[in-house]
Each structure stands twice: as C-alpha cells, then as structure tokens.
Write a protein that binds this DNA or RNA. Structure first.
Length: 825
RNA sequence: GCCCGGAUGGUGGAAUUGGUAGACACACGGGACUUAAAAUCCCGAGGCCCCGGAAGGGGCCGUGCCGGUUCGAGUCCGGCUCCGGGCACCA
C-alpha cells in the first residue's frame, strides 16, 4: 500500500474491476426485494460538469446503500437524445445531429464512469434510436385510435427563435423554456395529446403521492387548476336563436350580474353585430387585442379595455336586460370564453364597471370592517331574490339547482390544464407515424411498417422549416390503406414524449415484442426513488404521470403512477449563480478528478448541504474533503499490520472506559448513518457523524503505541467507518477495505448492524436547569432513580448557589436528559 | 395579488418528538515540527461584561423583527419584515 493517497490510481483500478465483474448489473430473478432508483436522464449536450454531477452522486449513494442493505437494485442510465441543441449544433458547425449526439453520449458516458456512478450500463438507452422510438410511434397510433391523440388547428405558442411550437407548459413568463425568446401566437395544424381527459385523475392522485415534496404537488395542482362552478346560457335579447354560454365559480352572485363579456375572438361575436359601422369597430378592437403577445396581455395593472356591442343579453335569474361587451380581460382559452360580470364580487369586473360607468350591485353582506372594493368573501346573500338569507355555499348549490331544474344550465368543473401540443416543426425528433392520402385523408402508418425511421441524409440549413419537408423519399409515400399517393407527416414529436416513458424501457431495454416486457415492468415498477431538478416539477413529471396512466389503460402496465417518491435536488451555485456553461462559472469534473479524485468531488457535494438545498461551491470545501480522505488513508497505512492482525471487539466487557466509549460511538454512528441515509437523505450529517467517529479513533491512537486490546476496538470502528463511507466514496473505501485484509470486495459486503448492548450507556449526563436556565451538569449511573438524580442535581455547588434561600416550587424531570428546578415567583 | 419555501457565528451547515443552540467542516488565530516554506499535527474561538497575578471561574445577551403559550421555544401560536421559488385578468 502506497504511503501517499493517489486517488487516480485507486479509482481507475476499481472502475475497471466493477466493469469487468459487471458489479451493478440488475436481474429480475432475485429473492431480494427490488429497489429502483433513478436520476432524471440527461440531454447529451456536450460535457457534464460538477453542477451536473450532484444529482448522479445522490442517486449513486442510494443505489450503493440499498445494495448493501440487501436490495436488488436497478440503477440505469440513458440519454434524452432528441432535441433542438443537436440541430443548432448542426447548423453552426456543419456536423450531423446524430453524430454530434453520439459523440456527446460517448464522452459523457466516460465522465459518469470516471465519477464512479454505479450504473447497469447494459441497460443504457438513447431515445434517438429507432429501436426506442418505434414503440412511441406504436403507442401514438393506439392513442389515435382512442381519441387520445388528435389533430386540430389552433392558436399555438410559437418560438420564433426555435421556429417551433411550444406546449403551454414550455412557456415561462411568455418566453421559451429553452432559449428564452419571447413567444408569439400562430394558427397552425398540429397534434395533441388529450391530457385533459386525465385531469381529474392526475389531480386526485396528487394527494396520494406521499413521497413527493409538497411544493411539487402544489405546483402540479395549480397547473391542473380545477375550479368548480356552473355553466349556463344568457339569451340574447330579441334573438331567441342566440345564446351565450358562460361559466362561473360563483353562481350565487348571478343577481349581481350587471353586464356580460365575450372574449374578442369568441365565434359568436360576428353574429351579434347589427350595425354596419359596428363591424369595423369590432374588427379593429379585435386586431388590437390579438396582436399583443400574451406577455403584454397579462402585464401588471393593465387597464381593462372593452367595446360595447349593440346586442344585449338577458339575465335568466331576474330577467334583467343587460349590456354586452367584448373585452381583452376575458380569455377564449378558459371556460366558455364568455363571462357573466358581477362587479360587486369580482375585482376585475369592478375595475371594468367603474371605467365604463356600469352599475354595481352587492349580493353578499360585507363584513363591518370591509374597506375594499369588490368583495369576494363569505357572507349572507342580499339583493338576490330567492337566494336572500343563504350563505354563499348554500346559495351556490341553490342557484345551480335552479338552473338545472329549468334546463338553463348545469354544474360544471373547469380546468386550467390544456391539451398537450406535441407537434414540433423540427428535424431531430421522433417522426409522427401518420400519412395524408389524397383519397383516404389522414391515415396512420401500419404497425408492421414501424418504425417510421427518421432519415439521416438531410440538409440542415437553418433557413426555417423542417428539413424533412424537402426530403422527397421521406415525404412521398404510399397510403397504407389504399396504396395510392400519400404525403408523410413531417412534424416530429415533442422530446418530452420520449422522457415520458424511458423509465419503463429500462425494465426491459432490449425487448423486441413491445414497449415493455410485462413481467419486467411488473417486477421493477414503480420507480422507488426518482431524483431530479425542481425545473421539471410541472413539465416532465406531469407528462410522465399522464403517459403512464395512458399505458395502464392500454394494458401495458399495471401501475397508476410511475414514481413512488421524488427528491428534488438543489442547484449547485458558484459566485452567486447556478453553475452553467452559459454563465461561465463551471467547475470541470476532469480538473477535480486530476487534482483530488472523483471520491473527493463526490464527498464535497454530499457533505456541503443536504440534497434538497442549493449547494454553494467552495474550492476550500473540496480541499477539506480531500484532507479527510487523505487522513483516513494515512491512518490505515500506518496501522495496517496491527489492524489486519487484530480481532474485532465483540463485547464491551473488561474494556476500559475510553474504549467502551469508542465502541459505543461506533455503534451509535452506524445507527445514525443508517437512519440519515434511509429515512432523511441527510447525507451531510451522515458524513459528519463518520468524521466524528474517525476523530475519536484518532484520539485513542494518538500516542502511537496502541495495545492489542485498543487495536481490536479501533479495528471495529475503522471497519465501520470504511463501510459506512462506501456509498459516498466507493473507490477509496474499496481500496482500504482490501488493504485491511478482506478478500471479498466492499460492494458485496452487507451494511453494518448496530447492537443495543454496545450502545448501552453506563453513565448519563444530566443537564440541570434552574428556572429553565442551564446551571449545571451531573453524571449519574444509567439506572439511577429519579430521586437520586434530583438529589444529585440539588447537591451541585453551582445549582445550590441559585437555589439558596428560595423555595422550590417543583422539579421537572425529562428522563435521561435533564431536570429543571422551578423556583417560586 | 395568491400559493409554497426559507432566514441560525466570519462561511457552508447541525440541533430528527418543545429539553445543553452552534455538531461536522471551511476560513481565521496561536503553537509544535522545519534553516525556511509547504504539508502535517496540537490548541483556541458566538457577542458583551465581571472576578483573578495566572491557570481558571462567573454573569448577561444571542437562532430576521414584535408579542404570546410553556418549568423550558431555533422548534408551537398570532402579527410583521426581508429573501427565494411557483402561479397569475382562470371568470
């Protein structure tokens, strides 16, 4: 054993051993319980840096820990390989997206191996392979058959920079989630997945995902945005054939309706125009509203603009004839695109009514101290006909019943969630397997013709539009139904479709009979622990949940939800900003490995903060981690012969106090580290506890002349340290373990257990408080009686000083911890 | 505006169920080793104040702010401030 710790030599050695032995291969035939741990797979964008490494390290700790705990662990890795950056690279550097992607994958795979992440590489997948996306195409066809995939013309979010459609989920503050360009609107034909059909189930299951962070659940719930209310018709005055359907969450306020509003783009607007000059007014107003981006339309404190139409409507509740407007604050994309306006109880309506001089009727009794304008709260109904005197909740029910009885409307639930637009006008994605036949119209590709392979020989110019449209061999095809001329769909699928099921493919990555081999999926799924960044709280996680439910309904899997537990890890921060290539503050993994080794890099990231918190990069912190590993190395090196020769201590009998203490601390540390990893993912405190134990070992052996008896206790402690550290720093611990004379490698060693006997305290330290302030500490035998402890506490000289001359009111005792002497007054 | 987090030494963080606040580390200071430096090892340390020649001993304050509950509050309750994140004309 080298005197000096050369991490690079050690790491290379063990990585080679793991690879040759295929130490991390997972198989379904095991008597052990399964554990599926998964980190969100990366987009192969180039190279990983220390900011990326964190999530893989966290997953690796769990994978290695669970293996030692006797689980059959599945810990796979793959590549989210389709996507825009590959195309952009192609445009910028003239390299084919496939080549660029594959080279990045090869490089990043090497990086992950060098960080010692224990993946079963036999299960590696890349989503750009036809063997992968063919199943996605098959499912697309199944979804098409069930109406879960459909085509429609719609106003979509368009990123002018990426030149493609974006799903609602991919628009952040009016900007593209990937390139941050301002998103505009466009009318376009495209493919949608009917995620709204699962809105209710997705929402209901939120409360059953107990292993998920609260904030992610909240974000998903908000995104689904369920609201309960009623829908009903407002007849147009004097036009019995025309009715305007409105949605409201407050049917109880209907008597306060003093006008109604349509979204400017509402299809009924044209029919409501009666005067010739009105058409021009409407068109100019509409044009003005629609030319604004959503960003502008939702700008803060924006005045609500509207145009009064000549048509009027009737409030069915009281027969009132009220004015009708089109206004920008009513959106076509929510509810029915039309509202009843109740300025008394809705602030937006209040603002609009004030501006247009419309009457305001209060229908809810305001609290005496109410100083606001519109009152949205609870109270007794007033000015509301048959609803008067009811509470808001009662009045909602009564008003809805009233509508239903007269066949004017119904109870209705609305969602903010929109269907998922999956069409992308890009090349580097999975082709959508449909054709357009001159005779038959839209026809899905025959299943036996799948996959529809993305052609490689394309010209990527960057001039806009998908290069597929100018690839005749791809576009021109035969109709699968009639054999006539047909044109292939040139849109590709959103890459979030691939990431919606990759975790299933890992269960049977080479299976050729379908998307997943049923038995394998039944065995491994759901993922027991999923780990990834908070940025996917809505997008990927919602899509994956939806897709899993679709696959369940198609009979492919049995599970309802894909991820049992979710850990949202924090970002790696350097110089006040997220570590990223674009910010120019990345720390290279290669530099860290050269200088300190992969183990040190891992140790630092695990020790500096708990996983869910942001982590501040600190070069000195890394240095500290390296020092710790070096100290450990040197210790084993110096005491190696004595340690190998020693017999581990099996009992505390006949040990002097300091060795009993060390043995006790050893077992307590095992317990703490086990609990910290298993129950809380608090790797930082687990590592801190191990450091404490090592410091205690150092204290026992400080004088350098350890006796045989000392060595046996030290050996137990040290072997515990090495074993407990293995999930965090697997290379150096494997090497130390071998040097401690063990034949079997550490990754096959069971996790250490702790014994109650060893943890038993013979003495207890009891804190003595007087009136809640610490005034003394006493050491008593563990089995000391309550009376004895109180007696001792009162005998403490310092305590005596505080108690002297005062009357003791009572003494509070917390067993094994403290006594509090409460004085009078 | 609404919803969810968070605020603890010079720094990252610890305190798991209301029971010794500051574990573990970083940075810092002192010492040992060295011709010297690096490395290593040892020691110290929340702030203010008091007693003592010194070693040491003691008091008060202290977990963003104000108040409350409790024998006892970083932890629970009420009211704020600031920071971070999410959603936002959603009817």
């Amino acid at each position: 054993m080298e005197e000096k710790y050369y991490p690079q030599i050690v790491e290379e050695k063990w990585q080679k051993i793991w690879e040759e032995k295929k130490s991390f291969r997972a198989a379904e035939n095991s008597s052990r319980p399964k554990y599926y741990v998964l980190e969100m797979f990366p987009y192969p964008s180039g190279r990983i840096h220390m900011g990326h490494v964190r999530v893989y390290t966290i997953g690796d700790v769990l994978a290695r820990f669970k293996r030692m705990r006797g689980f059959n662990v599945l810990h796979p890795m793959g590549w989210d390989a389709f996507g825009l950056p590959a195309e952009n690279a192609a445009i910028e550097r003239g390299i084919h997206p496939a080549k660029w992607t594959m080279e990045n994958i090869a490089y990043m795979k090497e990086q992950l191996k060098k960080m010692g992440i224990s993946y079963d590489w036999d299960r590696e997948i890349a989503t750009c392979e036809p063997e992968y996306y063919r199943w996605e195409q098959l499912i697309f066809i199944r979804m098409l058959e069930r109406g879960l995939a459909y085509r429609k013309r719609s106003t979509v979010n368009w990123c002018p920079s990426c030149r493609t459609v974006l799903a609602n989920e991919q628009v952040e503050n009016g900007r593209c989630w990937r390139c941050e360009s301002e998103v505009t609107k466009r009318d376009i034909d495209g493919w949608f997945f009917k995620i709204t059909a699962y809105a209710e189930e997705l929402l209901a299951w939120c409360d059953r995902l107990t292993g998920w962070p609260e904030r992610v659940i909240t974000m998903q719930k908000n995104w689904i945005g369920r609201s309960e209310g009623a829908e009903f018709d407002l007849p147009v005055a004097g036009r019995p054939e025309l009715k305007i359907r409105v949605f409201t969450t407050r049917p109880d306020t209907a008597f306060g309706m003093t006008y109604a509003v349509l979204a400017p783009e509402h299809p009924l607007v044209d029919q409501l125009i009666t005067r010739p000059e009105e058409r021009a007014e409407v068109e100019s107003f509409r044009a003005e509203v629609l030319k604004q981006s959503d960003q502008e339309r939702v700008a803060e404190d924006r005045p609500k603009r509207g145009l009064r139409l000549s048509a009027r409507v009737v409030n069915p509740f009281n027969g009132a004839d009220i004015p009708l407007f089109i206004a920008d604050y009513v959106l076509m994309t929510y509810g029915t695109g039309a509202i009843m306006a109740v300025p008394g109880e809705d602030q937006r309506d209040w603002d609009f009514a004030k501006k247009h001089g419309l009457p305001i009727i209060e229908t809810t009794q305001r609290p005496a101290d109410w100083t606001g304008e519109a009152y949205p709260g609870d109270g007794v109904k007033i000015n509301s006909g048959f609803l008067d005197g009811l509470t808001v909740a009662e009045a909602k029910r009564r008003a809805t019943d009233w509508l239903v009885e007269r066949r004017l409307g119904e109870a209705k639930v609305n969602y903010r969630l929109r269907d998922w637009g999956i069409s992308r006008q890009r090349y580097w994605g999975a082709p959508i397997p449909v054709l357009y036949c001159d005779a038959c119209g839209m026809v899905p590709e025959k299943e036996e013709n799948l996959p529809v392979v993305l052609p490689r020989d394309v010209q990527i110019s960057g001039k806009g539009g998908s290069p597929l449209t100018s690839h005749p061999d791809f576009v021109n095809a035969r109709c699968p139904r009639c054999g006539g001329r047909a044109r292939r769909e040139t849109d590709t699928m959103d890459t979030f479709v691939e990431s919606s099921w990759y975790f299933l493919r890992y269960c049977s990555p080479r299976y050729e009979g379908g998307m997943v081999e049923r038995a394998a999926a039944d065995y491994w799924m759901p993922v027991d622990q999923y780990i990834g960044g908070i940025e996917h709280a809505v997008l990927h996680l919602l899509y994956a949940r939806f897709y899993t439910k679709v696959l369940r309904d198609l009979g492919l899997v049995q599970i309802d939800e894909p991820f049992n537990a979710l850990l949202s890890q924090g970002m790696v921060i350097k110089e006040g900003a997220k570590m990223s290539k674009s910010k120019g503050n990345v720390v290279s993994d290669a530099v860290i490995r050269e200088k300190y080794g992969a183990d040190t890099g891992r140790l630092f990231e695990l020790f500096a903060a708990p996983p869910e918190k942001d982590l501040d990069w600190s070069d000195q912190g890394v240095e500290g981690g390296f020092r710790f590993l070096t100290r450990l190395w040197r210790f084993v090196c110096q005491h190696r012969d004595a340690l190998v020769a020693a017999t581990p201590a099996s009992s505390s009998d006949e040990l002097p106090a300091d060795l009993r203490d060390l043995r006790r601390l050893t077992h307590k540390t095992i317990k703490k580290v086990t609990d910290d990893i298993e129950l809380r993912f608090h790797f930082n405190t687990a590592i801190a506890a191990i450091m404490e134990l090592f410091n205690a070992v150092g204290a026992v052996t400080r004088d350098g002349s350890a006796s045989e008896r000392e060595m046996s206790v030290v050996k137990t402690a040290l072997e515990a340290i090495v074993t407990l550290l293995y999930p965090f720093v697997p290379h150096v611990t494997s090497e130390l373990w071998e040097n401690l004379g063990h034949k079997s490698s550490l990754d096959a060693v069971p996790w250490p257990s702790y014994s109650a006997e060893a943890m038993e305290q013979e003495n207890l330290l009891i804190v003595v408080q007087v009136d809640g302030r610490v005034r003394g500490k006493i050491t008593v035998p563990a089995d000391a009686s309550s009376d004895y402890i109180k007696e001792e506490a009162l005998a403490d000289p310092r305590v005596k000083g505080f108690v002297a001359g005062k009357e003791i009111q009572r003494i509070v005792e917390v067993p094994r911890r403290l006594v509090n002497i409460v004085l009078e007054g």
